[in-house]
């Protein structure tokens, strides 16, 4: 099952759904003809698309809008905030090429602040699928929700593993908390999974949590991991401010829970524009590089402990 086919199936099942794009047809390319009048390409105008989607939603439609994540969340930000968020309208906003998925496009296309921006808007929820299978599984639930949602689109193939059914606000505990527990989301799940296996082989017991919905976030899973682990490691292709690292730190402080937390993210900088696997390698986010960095953080922490 692909995103396109799942989307088409749902959209054609109910006339309330409309598929929109600001000339970002890549994620829809094979279903445009089949959608017929339920497809609307507004051209390269993200603000206009969000405003139009809000108007359609006022009349009872559920628009599923598509744009590159950077332009959707940044160029149209005030329209998302004021028309969709303040209006509490069920507009579903699919942002493509977020994080490292923008590859060699360069900083103009690097959406590495999207989580921070979207989670600041009251009423807007956030879903970051680890792969296309998870995206398809969750899609009916997200589209049926009365809330506005931001979807950090991810068409990558799933890692072969047993999965837990999707539910809003529930993280997926893929590996139980260990000495170290990795918390991640989106496309980097694949690399974090490889890193966890590698660390385990090297004698560091490693938990892995796929956060799935960053808003609402699964506070129980975060707190449990903090209580059961010696170190939490946040892995995200996002700035270190505003994303999961911020969410975890805020959650732990609010719950009066203390645990060392390391952030593997982008600290006040954009990443080197390269092809996807070259980016992962160059920036230290391949499974191998993540495992090395996490092992170093864990050993560094152990060496600091008294006695």
């Amino acid at each position: 099952m692909t995103y396109q086919h799942k989307l088409k199936e749902i959209v054609l099942s109910d006339p309330k759904y409309l598929v929109m794009t600001a000339e970002n047809r890549g994620p829809l390319r094979n279903i445009i003809d089949d959608l017929g009048s339920r497809f609307l390409d507004v051209g390269i105008m993200e603000q206009g698309m969000i405003g139009t989607a809000a108007g359609l939603a006022l009349r009872g439609r559920v628009p599923i809008v598509h744009s590159l994540s950077c332009f959707l969340t940044m160029r149209a930000f005030e329209f998302v905030r004021t028309d969709v968020g303040l209006g509490k309208l069920p507009v579903k906003m699919t942002g493509t090429l977020a994080g490292f998925l923008s590859e060699a496009n360069g900083p103009t296309h690097q959406s590495i602040e999207d989580i921070g921006l979207m989670r600041m808007i009251p009423n807007v929820n956030i879903f970051c699928p680890a792969d296309e299978l998870e995206l398809c599984e969750a899609l009916p639930i997200i589209l049926e929700s009365p809330q506005p949602w931001y979807i950090r689109f991810n068409p990558r193939r799933p890692v072969e593993r047993a999965t837990v059914a999707f539910a809003v606000g529930q993280a997926e505990v893929v590996r139980k908390p260990g000495e170290v527990t990795i918390l991640t989301y989106g496309a980097l799940f694949e690399q974090a999974y490889a890193a966890a296996l590698r660390l385990e082989r090297n004698g560091i017991s490693t938990g892995l949590i796929n956060m799935r919905t960053l808003k609402p976030v699964d506070e129980c899973a975060v707190v449990a991991a903090a209580k059961e682990s010696g170190l939490l490691v946040i892995v995200e292709d996002h700035l270190s401010t505003g994303g999961l690292y911020s969410i975890v730190c805020e959650t732990l402080v609010a719950q009066n829970c203390c645990c060392p937390v390391v952030s593997l993210s982008l600290n006040q900088r954009w990443f080197k524009p390269l092809l996807y696997h070259d980016v992962l390698d160059f920036e230290g986010f391949s499974g191998e590089k993540l495992a090395e960095r996490i092992a170093a953080a864990w050993e560094g922490l152990a060496s600091q402990e008294p006695g």
Binding site: N105, G106, K272, P273
Partner: peptide, 13 residues
Amino acid sequence: HLTARDDLYLHPN
């Protein structure tokens, strides 16, 4: 073009 040894990527900088 598109290699880590330079800054020639898909958009101007």
